[in-house]
Each structure stands twice: as structure tokens, then as C-alpha cells.
Design a protein around this nucleic acid. Structure first.
Length: 431
DNA sequence: GCGATCAGGT
DNA sequence: CACACCTGATCGC
């Protein structure tokens, strides 16, 4: 596809149409109430939540795409001035309420941008999404896939969300005399709370802004801001600290639960604090990635059980991103000719082609990926120089200089999720 | 003063 | 190790 036409989850470029996958803050960075660059496409649920997140936003620029229904938009080729028809279909990404993938089709071919997504094996919603993709592609192959590669590493393996939700219920039920606090973000994991509410026949306390969100999601009857009505409370994740937990325990016995796809804490030296049998391992080494023998799987046990981070704080592997095996299954299903990851961050960035190129249909592509065996390292240095450049340009204090050790704190600088979103232009790129 | 961006934290 | 989000410092306007 030609440059200058479409941007997904990116707002800093000149495009003719903008697409928002979901309302997590890291995907809306750069979007503000003064927006006037062009039409902003999103899902029905996102459009319902949108005004509360962006008060004063010119809502006439919002275009709502019904899930699963192809929608035709017309753009103008910047080079030739001719009209370009693009058929776009929003598909439920099952990441958080309103989160969607976008499937674009046109003369340029087909392109699927997953955004953040979790499609569990045998999930009904994933099954519906798959049928919608099939119905749009009509037997044609997918030319390009932009993939949520957050957990694109065989180390990342966790159970389906419903299994983990039951683990949480079991933890709560086995602490009948305790208050429970669960750390949550501003959006997402509602299904977990509903499961708890239903299984334990209890309402759940949420903070006022979260209740407003629940109201917009038409879930308000399960939730309350009255602490007297329940012992189960959802709090902003940043509030669920060990210090706060200890404070609460000086008043009433309380346990904390952090649902996250990231229970990847190194085991404490000499002992494993897991509730079940659980060993967590960090990133694979550069060497192992380069040699394409990803990891010594025999040394890894996925965290399939709740983990005790502290005497009163549990971590459960409840993830809204697909784990490695789900990504693998997804790619086998869509059979893209080419692909690239949408999350390019730091040390753990994995070019999905590195593991999945054999599942791609384009045989020349296999050779290109082979030839760029250094791609993981290349991407890392690009991220690093980009980050540093902006610091230098703005004359900010750099942590390198502050350290006074002459040693660059490289890992600090690049350990963030630096680039989300895409300006749809380079479908031929191999990286 | 305000919003945007960044570092550093959980 | 990283998700999504916080606070606080600093920048330009």
C-alpha cells in the first residue's frame, strides 16, 4: 500500500484515515481532544467509552465500524491523485472491551493488523473472528500480517483466562475471613471480575472512575463503590503495593491478587515461593536466539499456577495477550505471506518471523529472513539510538551522565515499549 | 499555567 | 523480564 493513507494506533503522521484498536493509554499516546487530522475509526464499544477518555474531542470525526462487517472507505493516492478503495473489517481482538483487529483489503492486497489480542484455543470469540476473516478473504491468502508479538517467545506459556479466573476464585474462597484486593488497569479484565462475582455471589467494589466505565459497558449492576457491600475490591494496579497491603493488614486481614501475563519474577535464590510447581525464567539469551535454538525448554516450566510474590500477594497468569502457542496457531490459521511485529521494544523484542517464518507462505521471504539473521540485534540498536537521540535533542539529563560511571545504562533506556502502531506503507518490508 | 514528553517507578 | 499506568521533572507555548 502507498504511504500516507492509513495509520493504526499512531497519530503523529499525516494520513488520510486513522484507526484506533483499543483504549489503553499506550495506544492512544499523541491523541488529544484537539484532534483534527482526519476521521478516526474504532469499534462500537470504543466509541462509547471514548468521550469519557477524551472530553472535548470533536465526535463528528469518529467513525464506528461494526464488528465483522466490511466497510468501504475511499482514499486519494498522494502520488497519482486517483481514488483508492479500501475495504476494512473490524474483528474482535478479545483483549479488552472494544479492542479490535483491522483487516484491510484493496488493490494492494490484504493486510491484517491484530493490535493487542488474545485468541485462546477453542475460544468461541476467536472462532467467530476466524470465520469473519475467512469470509472477508474468501479463500485468498493474507499478504501481510502485523502481529501482537508481546509474548512471541516459547518461554511465554500460560493457561486460558477462564482457567485462571477459577484459580482466583479458589484463592478467594480459601480465604473466607480476608478482604481481597485485585490490581487492575483502567480498562480490561472485566470478565475476570464477572467470573468472581458470579461464582462467589458477591458484588465487587471498584473506584469511581472504574464504575463509570462499568456503567458504559452496561455492567454496573455487578459493581459498587460502597465498601460495606463486599469484601472483594478492585483497585488501580499501581495502588496494590506491598506497603499498602501491609497497611491494610494492620486494620483487617487482606490479600492482594495481581492478574498479569507477567509473573516472570526470578525465583528467590535457593527457594521457590510458588504455590504450585512454578519456575519462572527471563528472556532467552542473545546467543540462543541467534542460533535459532530458541531455548532449552527442558529448563523452563511455565507459570501455570498462582505465585506468591509476598506473604499476602498473589500473582496469577491472567493475560490479555496471546501466549506463544496461541500466536503459533493464529499464524497457521491466517497463513500470511509476510509479517512483522507491532511491538518493537527493547531487549525482549522478537521478530515473529524468527520463530514463525516457516509458517509464512512466501518462499522468497524465508530466504530474506534467513539472510537477516541479525535482525533481532539490528532492531535493538535502532530502538536504542532512537531513544537516545530524542534525549540528546531535547537537552535532557541523561541517566548515563548522572550515573557518573561512564557506563551507559542501556537497559534502562531501552526497556520500554517504544513503538506501537503503524503507518501502513511498507508491506514489502521483511523486518 | 497548561499540555506534552520523558524518566523512573510499580 | 514486561503491561499499562502512575508521579514528578522538564520542556515549549
Amino acid at each position: 500500500m502507498e504511504k500516507g493513507l492509513i495509520s493504526v494506533d499512531r497519530w503523529d503522521e499525516q494520513s488520510q484515515a486513522y484507526f484506533l484498536t483499543h483504549l489503553h493509554a499506550d495506544h492512544t499516546q499523541g491523541l488529544s481532544h484537539r484532534w483534527k487530522r482526519g476521521p478516526l475509526f474504532c469499534s462500537p464499544i470504543t466509541s462509547r467509552l471514548f468521550p469519557a477518555r477524551f472530553p472535548g474531542f470533536n465526535l463528528s470525526l469518529i467513525r464506528v465500524l461494526e464488528i465483522g462487517s466490511p466497510h468501504l472507505i475511499y482514499l486519494v493516492s498522494p502520488s497519482s491523485g486517483s481514488e483508492i478503495a479500501v475495504r476494512v473489517t473490524a474483528i474482535d481482538a478479545v483483549h479488552c472491551p472494544g479492542a479490535v483487529m483491522y483487516l484491510f483489503c484493496g488493490e494492494f492486497g490484504s493486510m491484517l493488523y491484530t493490535g493487542d489480542f488474545r485468541w485462546e484455543a477453542n475460544s468461541d470469540k476467536a472462532h467467530i473472528g476466524k470465520s469473519q476473516i475467512c469470509s472477508v478473504l474468501q479463500g485468498n491468502e493474507l499478504d501481510f500480517l502485523y502481529l501482537d508479538n508481546t509474548y512471541c517467545n516459547p518461554l511465554f506459556s500460560f493457561p486460558p483466562r477462564d482457567v485462571v479466573a477459577q484459580q482466583v476464585v479458589d484463592i478467594i474462597a480459601s480465604h473466607p475471613d480476608y478482604d481481597i484486593i485485585i490490581g487492575l488497569d483502567t480498562l480490561g479484565k472485566e470478565e475476570l471480575l464477572l467470573h468472581i462475582s458470579c461464582a462467589l455471589k458477591t458484588k465487587i467494589w471498584v473506584w469511581p472512575e472504574r464504575l463509570q466505565t462499568m456503567h458504559l459497558l452496561e455492567l454496573s449492576d455487578v459493581f459498587t463503590t460502597n465498601t460495606a457491600l463486599t469484601r472483594v475490591r478492585a483497585v488501580p494496579r499501581y495502588c496494590l503495593t506491598i506497603k499498602n497491603l501491609e497497611g491494610l493488614n494492620s486494620v483487617h486481614p487482606t490479600i492482594g491478587i495481581v492478574p498479569s501475563g507477567l509473573p516472570w519474577v526470578r525465583p528467590v535464590e535457593g527457594k521457590d515461593s510458588s504455590v504450585g510447581s512454578d519456575i519462572s525464567v527471563c528472556c532467552t539469551s542473545k546467543r540462543s536466539r541467534k542460533s535459532r535454538v530458541a531455548v532449552d525448554v527442558s529448563q523452563v516450566v511455565a507459570p501455570k499456577f498462582p505465585k506468591l510474590l509476598h506473604q499476602r500477594l498473589y500473582s496469577v497468569p491472567y493475560s490479555d495477550h496471546s501466549c506463544f502457542s496461541e500466536l503459533q496457531e493464529f499464524i497457521k490459521f491466517v497463513k500470511p505471506a509476510k509479517m512483522r511485529g507491532i511491538v518493537s521494544s527493547s531487549v525482549c523484542y522478537v521478530n515473529p518471523s524468527y520463530y514463525f517464518r516457516d509458517l509464512c507462505e512466501d518462499s522468497q521471504y524465508h530466504q530474506q529472513v534467513d539472510q537477516s539473521s541479525e535482525s533481532v540485534e539490528v532492531i535493538q540498536s535502532e530502538s536504542f539510538s532512537g531513544c537516545n537521540k530524542s534525549n540528546v535533542a531535547r537537552g535532557r539529563k541523561s541517566s548515563d551522565k548522572v550515573s557518573g560511571l561512564g557506563v551507559r545504562k542501556r537497559r534502562v533506556s531501552i526497556s520500554r515499549r517504544e513503538r506501537i502502531g503503524a503507518r501502513i506503507a511498507e508491506m514489502d518490508s521483511t523486518s
